[in-house]
Amino acid sequence: MGLLDRFRSGATRGASARRTGSGDGGDARYLAEWVRTHVGVEGYIEPKTTVTDVTVVLIAADGEWTRRIVGERGAQRLAKDLRIPVYDVGRTGYPQRMRDYDARKRIERQRAFEEDLREL
Rank of each mutant, 00 (worst) to 15 (best):
L58T: 06
Y87V: 04
A60N: 06
T49K: 07
R18L: 13
W34K: 05
T66L: 01
D100I: 02
G63H: 02
T52D: 13
M98N: 03
R77V: 08
Y44G: 00
I69W: 01
E72Y: 06
G40T: 12
D100G: 00
R29K: 15
A32V: 03
Q76I: 14
R106F: 03
G14I: 05
E72H: 11
T12A: 08
Q76C: 03
L117C: 01
I84S: 03
V51H: 12
I59K: 00
A28S: 13
R104V: 10
R19G: 00
D100K: 08
G40F: 10
A32N: 04
G90I: 10
A32T: 15
G23W: 13
T37S: 11
Q96A: 12
Q96W: 02
Q110K: 14
G21I: 13
K105M: 13
G25W: 11
R109P: 01
G40S: 11
G43L: 06
R19Y: 06
E42T: 09
R18F: 07
G23R: 14
A61W: 03
R67L: 08
Y30Q: 06
R97K: 14
D62E: 06
H38T: 02
L117R: 12
V51W: 11
K105H: 06
W34D: 01
V86S: 03
R13N: 02
L31Q: 13
G43T: 09
F113I: 11
W65S: 12
T66P: 01
I69C: 05
A61V: 09
G63V: 03
A32H: 10
D102A: 12
T12L: 10
G74M: 05
T50R: 15
R104C: 05
G26P: 07
R6Q: 12
D27Q: 15
G25Q: 11
R118P: 01
G14W: 09
L82I: 05
Y44H: 11
K48A: 14
L58S: 03
G63E: 00
P95Q: 04
A103N: 06
A112I: 04
D24E: 12
R73W: 10
G2Y: 01
G10K: 08
S9M: 00
A79F: 06
D81C: 07
